[in-house]
Every structure is written in C-alpha cells, then in structure tokens.
Design a protein around this nucleic acid. Structure first.
Lengths: 108, 108
DNA sequence: CATAAGCGTAAGTCCAGACTAACCGTAAGC
DNA sequence: GCTTACGGTTAGTCTGGACTTACGCTTATG
C-alpha cells in the first residue's frame, strides 16, 4: 500500500522537477533551489515528502545535505502498475474469448 | 510529457478505487458509484479525468456506459519511471567507480 | 568565541480540485 | 406519446497542500 505515498509524492510538478535535477547525480538543497522558481524552504519541504516516500536518500557533507535518488524507490509503484494492467489484459482476453464463443453459438 | 497527466490522474485515492473496481472487468457508472462513498456525479467527474489521461475506454450499451482499463494506459508513466531510475543507477555506479579510483590514488 | 553558510521548522496565506445539489439530455419500456 | 433509468454538466462550497516569511539549529571558518 506504500505505492500510494509514492504516487502522491511524484504527482507534484515541483517535486518532479527536483527528481529531474537529481537524476544525473546528488545535489544539495541550495543547488536544487537555484534551478527552481520556488524558495529554498519550499524545496526542503518537498525533499521531506520525497524522502518519506522512500524515493530519496540523504548524505551529510559538512553543513550541506546531499540528496540522491534511492535505487529502488519506485519499485512498489511499478509493481502495482504491472499487476493492475496485467489483470486488465487478462480480463480483456477472457471477455473477448467469451464473446467469441457466444457469437459462435448464436451464429451472429 | 503525457505521463504527467497519468500521474495526476492516479494520485487521487477515489480514482484509484475506481481503477481497482474496474480492474477485473468493465463496469457502469452506477455500479462503480455503488462501491464508493461519493455521489455518482463525483464518479462521473473522476471517470472524465481518467479517460482524458488515456487510462480508460468507454463503451455505450443502451443507456449505460461501460468503462474499462485501456490496455496501454500506463505505458508513458512506466517508460518515465524506467528511464529515471535507469539514469539514477548508472550515475550511482559511475560515482562509486570514481570514488574507488580516487581512494586508491590517495591510499585512503 | 564570533561570524557566516547551509538547512530544517513553524505559522500563516492562498488556490487548485474534490465534492454535493440541482439540472438537463438520451435511450429503453410501458 | 409519457415515464423511468442512467449519466454528463453546471454552480457553488470547502478543505488539503503548496508556498512564503521569519526563526532557530548545526557545522565550518576566521
């Protein structure tokens, strides 16, 4: 059920911009805020949400805090997506099969 | 960039409940609303969002409208997730390699 | 120790969006 | 035709959360 927090975390455009900034490697809060149209405290709050969702990891370096993507942060979400659409495809196939046999029965 | 609308669509808990209800096969608006703690108009609005995001398809059957999961509705989101975390893993490997060589150089 | 740099936190504002109630259109059944 | 079921749409309310400002804490540097 933790995939729900993951979805909420990446639903915000500012947080996705943070992920895009982090994508190539770790960065400090100030470096991230410099690329965004919001203040540094706002970035801090977003980073907190992303960390709580398990998408980011932190590393202290002096007075700076370096954030990076957590290796398997989106695993739960991906598993949920896969399961959901696997069910959809199988049910679709089952109904198509049922419709085919019923049409053969009614000759129409 | 359409993955953004997909994320926003599945970020709402009520809309995820709709997806769970649809998961096993198509259902009408009334059937969906009967399982949820919100009114039918609210369900209609959510179904519109899900359709606009390409996650659902509709089929008219008399006065009823049957909704089902679109086969490849989450493809864009999946691709984005895959690309994002592939970059993260490769950058992580690259930095780990760089750190290893620098430590070997400094003997510490 | 004093100063500065870098962040997190608290309090308060504001707006997107989730919701309900009321309405209207359309297709089936009498 | 009239009536009933089924749903989409509109108008309006209200709450969660994104944002800023102000403050305090911690670590490096002189």
């Amino acid at each position: 059920m933790t995939y729900a927090t993951t979805i909420v975390a990446i639903a915000d455009p500012t947080r996705r911009a943070i992920l895009e900034r982090i994508r190539a490697g770790e960065a400090s809060v100030g470096e991230i805020a410099a690329c965004l149209p919001v203040t540094r405290p706002a970035v801090s709050q977003h980073l907190r949400v992303l960390c709580d969702a398990g998408l980011l990891t932190v590393r202290q370096a002096g007075t700076r805090r370096l954030y990076r993507l957590a290796p398997n942060g989106a695993a739960d979400l991906r598993a949920w997506l896969d399961a959901m659409w696997a069910d959809a495809l199988s049910s679709f196939a089952a109904e198509a099969r049922a419709r085919a046999t019923s049409e053969k029965g009614t000759h129409k």
